[in-house]
Amino acid sequence: MITRLLLAMPFLTVAVLLLLALGALLFKRNLIKMLMGLSLMESAVNLFLVAIGYRQDGVAPIFTNVPQTLMVLPTVQALTLTAIVIGVATSAMMLSFAMVIYKKYGTVDVRNIRKLNG
């Protein structure tokens, strides 16, 4: 049982990270902290993708001077690369929104910016 738990450790980390991210999104009222939660969720998904493509005793899928040909799966790593770049783009967008909201309302608390004032 304990061996099984230790072997599943990356997925446990993913579960804990997802929980923390959801908690930050649900309980925090500060926009910047909510964005940190979103970033955490993105990291959890990246870790999940990399961990699900791991093959026991595999090496990185690069053939330059490689000692063996048993390699981990390359497709999930490519998907992770895509996810990281898109995460950077969306993070930049959301942080810019937060900056503009702070300029307009003078606060980043979501309770105070909920009202529509034109």
């Binding site: 053939f63 330059t64 001077n65 490689v66 000692p67 040909t69």
Partner: peptide, 9 residues
Amino acid sequence: PVAFGANPG
């Protein structure tokens, strides 16, 4: 062209 397997690149 590149041969299959480990190579210096």
